[in-house]
Nucleic acid binder design. Structure first.
Lengths: 162, 162
DNA sequence: CGCAGATAGTTGTTTGAACGACTAATCGAG
DNA sequence: CTCGATTAGTCGTTCAAACAACTATCTGCG
């Protein structure tokens, strides 16, 4: 009789409101996915966001992209792209250059060393992703995408910036 | 013939493999949800994890919980619970006490001030959560929960710890 | 022109995260 | 007992995140 309200063990196992369950479920699942991906990238000396930047730059032209564009394409928004690029540049994975048309813009491009760093990662990464969601049917995956898109649109409408 | 695959603009708008889309979608959506929740909690001097700890402790008995148990119930795993509790204790929101049965264990309990800090937050928080997912039908929410549970089980099997 | 406003990026500073090493207490086998 | 192994928590240190303020460049209107 000392713990009358001790039935709240796991935030995901409760009979919480459906909205709470969904929000918490997304956050919880994302945290575990990040944990699984962290170990993967760490073996290659990269963080999640670093790999993301390199992948984005590899998909860009040889002139690279403006920092603003890189930030817009990132999965997770980083509030200080400058110093993140600083570290990548210090490691020789990206290269900065001034934009000839706009003196404010610094263009960022991937270096050959950066390409080598992420070379060969795509296939094992995809295998890991498949292992994470492989038990879901294509229909379930499509529904998941649609539900997430709905939530993210609502969430972006409530973000401070922009 | 140097860049034959330069059609990758937005990580969510591509025709990427379904597994990649799902993984990226969860991470992307979680990041936006966190951004929306951050502003909410910030107005009350709390972070997401801090509010989470207080909510967990409020659901526990008057003796509080062992740090280990708090960590296990958290939505996002924190690798240094000690200093997180340090900050909450410094602000007078929680209180530490030694466990009489096990000298290794430090029990953590919420203080009246901690209760006041999170009092009244539940309803607006729930309203925010509903605003985030309100456009989804109950069926869609149930399917979302099921899909996330599947993914998180697979992800936890690939985490370093435990 | 010339100046108000907007945009892109950098920098300062504080706070928290991440990783590992370390201490102390408990448990279990012999 | 008592010694090795395990568990709970704390501490040191390094790195990155977050927020705000600042500089420099561009845009457009008068």
């Amino acid at each position: 009789m000392t713990e009358p309200a001790g039935d709240r063990r796991d935030p995901l196992a409760t009979a919480a409101p459906a909205a709470t369950r969904a929000v918490v479920g997304v956050l919880y699942t994302a945290d575990r996915i990040r944990g699984a991906l962290r170990g993967f990238f760490r073996a290659h000396g990269l963080t999640l966001n670093q790999h993301n930047v390199l992948r984005i730059l590899r998909g860009a032209g040889p002139d690279g992209l403006a920092g603003r564009e890189v930030a817009a394409r990132l999965i997770e928004r980083v509030p200080d792209l400058t110093r993140m690029i600083d570290r990548l540049e210090r490691d020789g994975l990206v290269r900065r250059s001034a934009c000839p048309h706009d003196g404010r813009v610094t263009r960022i491009a991937i270096t050959p060393r950066g390409r080598r760093r992420i070379a060969g990662l795509e296939e094992p990464l995809r295998a890991l992703e498949v292992a994470l969601v492989g038990d879901l049917t294509p229909t379930a995956l499509a529904r998941l995408d649609a539900a997430l898109a709905t939530i993210r649109d609502a969430a972006e409408a409530r973000l401070p910036g922009t």
